[in-house]
């Protein structure tokens, strides 16, 4: 009940406008962050803008009285996903997008933009046209620790009605972890094999060049010896 808490903190402040201002602030931050993600040329800036987007969405979840999901949003997305992205971007180094002239499908990009804009306009139009019900009242007294959006209520839902979804999700996470390891190992293995191949090839080349040089040297020495037996003056020089 963000509104009630704020009203408690500021008794003179009317609850409604302040919550609207908060929504405007975080919605603007979310949209600006998302736009920056898709317009920044540096992937690093994109990832950090996504962090802004995630955090402001977490604040919006808090406005919707869902503290547990808001904490999960900050922990999982801002804490884990963005950090993973930043690690990979730092690992792969600076790879900005190529110059615009190099874009092979450049003619299709305005069409893609128009398609995405039309899709968004359609979604917003549907939202405007639809008649959503007013928010249910959740301010009535509930048993301690059982309020809407509390960890306890979500835990009951997960281990009760949605226990199958819970188990399947854990299986999906396990498969994803194994898949990540396998992908990392195959990429690494190929990398190592290529490097070893290059090393052995260069070693072979070095050996061959060495043997070739050795043969040339022995042939020259033999020729010199042969020349030395015939004419002693040449051998002494």
């Amino acid at each position: 009940m963000t509104g009630l808490i704020l009203a408690d903190l500021n008794p003179e402040l009317p609850g409604a406008p302040f919550e609207v201002i908060l929504f405007g602030l975080f919605a603007t931050l979310a949209v600006v962050g998302a736009l920056r993600v898709i317009t920044a040329s540096d992937p690093f800036v994109s990832a950090l803008s996504l962090l802004i987007n995630f955090v402001s969405l977490g604040a919006l979840y808090l406005m919707l009285d869902q503290s547990f999901v808001a904490i999960g949003q900050i922990l999982v997305y801002a804490g884990a996903v963005v950090v993973l992205f930043l690690f990979v971007i730092a690992y792969l180094g600076d790879r900005r997008e190529l110059a615009e002239d190099a874009v092979r499908l450049r003619a299709l990009r305005p069409i893609a933009l128009v398609a995405a804009a039309a899709f968004g306009a359609m979604l917003v139009g549907v939202v405007i046209a639809a008649d959503f019900p007013d928010a249910a009242d959740i301010s009535k007294k509930t048993p301690a620790g059982f309020s809407f959006g509390s960890p306890r209520a979500i835990g009951e839902a997960f281990l009760g009605h949605y226990v199958l979804a819970f188990e399947v999700t854990s299986l999906v996470l396990l498969v994803a972890a194994i898949g990540g390891i396998v992908l990392g190992l195959t990429g690494r293995a190929r990398h190592d094999r290529l490097r070893k191949l290059m090393q052995t090839r260069s070693a072979d080349q070095q050996k061959r060049r060495y043997e070739q040089a050795e043969q040339e040297l022995t042939a020259r020495r033999r020729a010199e010896l042969a020349a030395g037996t015939s004419t002693k003056e040449d051998a002494s020089t």
């Binding site: 409604a16 979310a30 998302a34 736009l35 919006l60 804009a117 306009a121 979604l123 917003v124």
Partner: peptide
């Protein structure tokens, strides 16, 4: 909740469209 749910769903629609534009347009 003083902010109507329409606003949240509208924001969600706008964000989804931005994400779709990014998937379609970006090459990295």
């Amino acid at each position: 909740m003083t902010v109507p749910v329409d606003w949240f769903v509208g924001l969600s629609a706008i964000l989804f469209a931005i994400g779709a534009a990014g998937v379609l347009v970006r090459r990295n």
